[in-house]
């Protein structure tokens, strides 16, 4: 080995690496440390080593010698290669997952666009039906006919409600968020009272205890808050104990509006609590009472769009949904704009 040029001791890749990386480093930098280099063994096989090199220089800065220490590192190299392989595998797996996710995401978006278009197009024939029923209502003679027309009108309204929910879902999901308009419309308390009246009519025999103290203006979209109460109250009537009253409370206190709906009855299983506000989540109820499972989702989106929050608590004694929001837009963290639900 003595007397042979260094490069002859290296494998071909080692030589190239030495020339392109290590030689310049020695010249510019004066040393290199812990570099993987392969020496050629007698049989032509590579011998993995770790090398440190240093160039000594005279007082003029001219190189006088180069010393390189090689340390055999077969196991270390093997270990490093395993690490590299696993890193490569992890990277490939992450890429595959990412790609799959992208595809799923695109699919989901397409489905939501479909829902939006479908929901929108269903409204027109429904409006025609509704108009037809109204005309019939004016001319019907017999009590039986009147009942049938009334049933048709109720059904049309129910369908319109379902379509509105689907459209709200699609809007929330397509990034626009649920639209809220902060305008000085009907006073909030009056809107809430109206919602309770409607639901009382729809659920005769059920007791709804109302306690409203909205004694200052609230900067909100009152019809949306009414929609939220309607969803929460409808939910409480469907799932709560039929023999106990449902409580509706609203009050303004310390710059905040708090609106809550509570009912007695079976507690919500803890494992279901996380999913309550997800779209299409449906609890146990008679099939005939089932909606699309969008009520709570939409309610939570309305809460978000107001810079507020909707939380649920459930104990064996009581299940309660509480919505809180700042009374004035200025004191909110979030802007009034649409909230992206994704």
């Amino acid at each position: 080995m003595l007397g042979r040029p260094l490069l002859e001791l290296l494998t071909v890749p080692g030589r190239i690496y030495y020339e392109t990386h290590l030689a310049p480093l020695l010249r510019m930098h004066g040393f290199f440390s812990e570099v993987a280099l392969d020496l050629l063994e007698g049989d032509g096989e590579p011998l993995h080593t770790i090398a440190n090199g240093k160039e000594t220089r005279d007082s003029e800065g001219r190189p006088t010698s180069i010393r390189i220490a090689f340390v055999k590192s077969i196991d270390r190299r093997r270990y490093e290669q395993e690490l590299l392989r696993s890193r490569e595998m992890a990277r490939a797996a992450a890429e595959a997952t990412e790609e799959k996710l992208q595809r799923e995401h695109q699919m989901a978006e397409l489905r939501e666009q479909f829902i939006a278009v479908l929901g929108h197009d269903l409204r027109n024939p429904l409006a025609a039906l509704s108009a037809g029923a109204r005309i019939l209502d004016r001319t019907v003679q017999s009590e039986k006919e009147r009942q049938i027309v009334a049933m048709m009108q109720t059904t049309v309204m129910r369908m319109a409600g379902l379509i509105d929910d689907v459209l709200d879902l699609a809007r929330g999901r397509l990034g626009g968020g649920i639209a809220v308009e902060h305008k000085a419309g009907k006073p909030l308390e009056a809107v809430l009272t109206q919602v309770v009246v409607e639901l009382r009519l729809a659920s005769p025999g059920r007791e709804i205890v109302v306690d409203l103290h909205v004694d200052r203006p609230v900067d909100c979209d009152s019809s949306r808050i009414g929609q939220m109460l309607s969803n929460l109250l409808g939910n409480a009537l469907t799932h709560g104990s039929a023999s106990k009253p449902v409580m509706v409370r609203a009050e303004t206190r310390d710059e905040a509006l708090e609106l809550s709906v509570s009912n007695a009855g079976e507690r919500i299983p803890p494992e279901a609590m996380d999913k309550l506000f997800e779209p299409f989540f449906r609890g146990k109820a008679r099939a005939s009472r089932q909606g699309l499972g969008l009520g709570l989702y939409i309610a939570s989106q309305i809460a978000k769009a107001h810079g507020g929050e909707l939380v649920a608590t459930s104990t064996p004694e009581e299940t309660r949904f509480t919505f809180t929001m700042p009374v004035q837009a200025e004191s909110r963290d979030q802007t009034d704009g649409p909230v992206d639900s994704t």
């Binding site: 690496y17 480093l25 993987a36 490093e80």
Partner: peptide, 22 residues
């Protein structure tokens, strides 16, 4: 082989720099 070998010296790059330029 060279391309493969280059990887051996990139182990130390996890901290965004090669040991040889430490």
């Amino acid at each position: 082989e060279l391309l493969e070998f280059l990887e051996a010296n990139h182990m130390g790059w996890s901290a965004q720099m090669a040991p040889l330029i430490m």
